[in-house]
Nucleic acid binder design. Structure first.
Lengths: 143, 143
DNA sequence: CATATAGATTAGAATAATTCTAATTTAATA
DNA sequence: TATTAAATTAGAATTATTCTAATCTATATG
């Protein structure tokens, strides 16, 4: 965290208390929060916090490649502070999102007609499934 | 198309002229239109068309599994009338979306810790890349 | 063919996420 | 400590989508 902060300062990215609070909230966070989630949390410590600041900070971090946008939910964007490329698995019942750290690039060969039209740079997989909790719930109803 | 319409009628899905126009617009359409795209097009033939009808119809078709939602763009949902499972490749410059018809399920083995937490049901891959047109444009600027 | 009615359509209002604005404040530097 | 470019703020604006309640109509039935 300290190193990151020094790097930001060097880049001319001003470290305001609000931004530090947002960074702290995001650090190691695997809950895939929305802008609202971040706002609610940080607002407790900084009651004058505005959405503009949250969005502004998220945009800056996205441009730096420090966080990833998750667009699974058409209602609102979620953010993932883990910038290492990884994939997601979403429970089709409760929408819980799990992380998958595995690189499939080598096995994802694209068909010829696609390669001739696009130069591929990366990939992201959304797996769909049902999580433990929801599976247990389903069973309960069936019995 | 005729068969599909007969099927819909049997299911009690009323085939109004507006719906037929939407279905006709979507049939074989590979442009991944947004609700607005559909509205604009069909409005020409049915000037009283409302967004409610477009969304209502899209929702019904989605529930039937006839169309897929594309959530790549956080601004708005796009729709894909090709209900066969397939993947997408998105140009990071112009956002053009291409279709990829290939089943990668067999090579997408999930790590153990994920399988113990989720029962996987399906997957969708978004590839990122740069399309021909944008690559040509880039080259032009560099020279 | 006329009728009944469940379901569809409509205009416009409501909602919700996100972006914009313009005035004020502040982190970082000198 | 003063300077200033950049950040913060409240609140307005924007945009996609959903809701509402009144009206209309595709379909099934007599």
């Amino acid at each position: 965290m300290e190193k990151l902060i020094a790097k930001y300062r060097k880049e001319g990215f001003k470290l305001t208390p609000q931004r530090l609070a947002i960074l702290k909230f995001l650090e190691g966070n695997t809950s895939h929060p929305s802008a609202m989630d971040i706002y609610s949390e940080v607002k407790d410590a900084y009651p004058t916090l505005s959405f503009a600041t949250v969005y502004n900070t998220l945009q800056a971090l996205r441009n730096k490649g420090e966080i990833l946008e998750i667009t699974i939910n058409p209602q609102k964007t979620h953010y993932d502070p883990n910038s290492k490329p990884h994939h997601h698995i979403i429970c089709i019942k409760c929408k819980k999102i799990g992380d998958i750290f595995k690189d499939y690039s080598k096995v994802l060969q694209l068909p010829y007609d696609v390669v001739s039209e696009f130069k591929p740079l990366g990939n992201h997989i959304d797996f769909y499934g049902i999580c433990m909790r929801c599976r247990k719930k389903e069973r309960r109803y069936k019995l």
